Amino acid sequence: MLLVTGATGTVGREVIKLLAAAGQKVTAVTRTPDAARLSEGVTVHEGDPSRPQTLAPVLAGADAILLSPRAVGTAVGDLLGLAVEHGVRRVVVLSAVTVEYGGGYRRFAEAFRAVEDTARASGLDWTFLRCADFAANSLAWAPQIRATGTVRGASAAATTSPIHQRDIGAVAVRALLEPGHAGQAYALTGPQALTQRDRARIIGQAIGATVTFEETPPELVRQSMLAQGLPQEVADRMLGYNAACLEQPGPTTNTVARLLGRPALTFADWAAENAAAFRN
């Protein structure tokens, strides 16, 4: 059995969907099972990963864990220690490309590095998925694109290679199921370096309209993001990383293609799939 924390998150949902489609036995951990709406056949366990004892009933039958640091918080060591006690053999950690390449506020990279260090010391076989910024982060633009056709954001020329969550999910599934990934740290990015203006233009192409990007002071952008309900940590991470990528573009790797044996999905692929979110 495979145990997924952060089951209702952007990546967790993709991992569960892919595992269920492959006929794997999956247990999804969530604090709100009634609202989870996960794939048919998936076992949903009501638990709080930041309180590891609430996962004890399902750890005993687990072979591997997908660990979402955001879901687990400061309890990573306790959770992994409990996993070892219950016979779990493998952990796949969702980490960040900034651990390897830098960029953004140092505290975020240091937090991910601390999670990785804890996994290394746990005694479990580990694999780290160091992810670039998610293409799905652009959903934060949806309300203003629907209303005005313009993105008001900071660091318009910031250049990164955003990754589709399905590619992260597909790599995670391989790392959960295949022993050859133990001890590996993978830097996962999309296949194209794009500015934020490029992303706005591509979204426009997906919805058949012109979408422009208007440079806006970062503090105003932060306030807008918080007003939409985004956590302050997420707003700070996105704004800090984009500011850093004005001077030094984020990395572009071929890791996804190498591991999956197919091209990585593009931002245009993601925009086409999510076009409805940006239309009136």
Rank of each mutant, 00 (worst) to 15 (best):
Q223Y: 08
N242K: 06
N254Q: 14
K25T: 15
D117M: 13
A200P: 02
G261D: 13
V26T: 09
L260E: 10
A7H: 05
T253P: 08
A35Y: 04
G240C: 13
A28C: 02
L260W: 00
D34M: 11
A7V: 09
A200Q: 02
R51A: 14
A158L: 07
E273R: 15
A277C: 04
D269L: 03
R197P: 01
N274Q: 14
L66Q: 06
G87I: 07
L59H: 00
G12A: 01
E219T: 12
G153K: 00
K25L: 13
H86W: 08
V88T: 09
S50A: 15
G12T: 03
G87V: 12
R199F: 08
P162S: 08
G104N: 07
G87H: 12
G73L: 04
P263T: 10
T160W: 06
S122W: 02
A272I: 11
R120N: 11
A20D: 05
A244N: 14
R120L: 13
V97K: 04
P249Y: 05
G87E: 09
T148R: 05
T212S: 12
Y101N: 12
P249K: 06
S155P: 00
G250K: 00
P249C: 10
A154R: 04
A187T: 12
I168V: 15
L194K: 04
G190L: 04
A142K: 10
V97Q: 08
T32C: 03
Q24W: 03
A147P: 01
T266H: 05
A142Y: 05
A187V: 13
A206M: 02
W126R: 08
G12V: 00
T216N: 09
V26Q: 02
V99T: 14
L38I: 10
R237E: 15
W141E: 02
P217K: 10
A257H: 00
L55I: 01
R197Y: 02
E46C: 13
G87F: 02
A64L: 00
G6N: 03
T5E: 07
A206T: 07
G23H: 13
E219L: 14
W141H: 10
G73E: 09
A244P: 10
P162E: 09
D125Q: 14
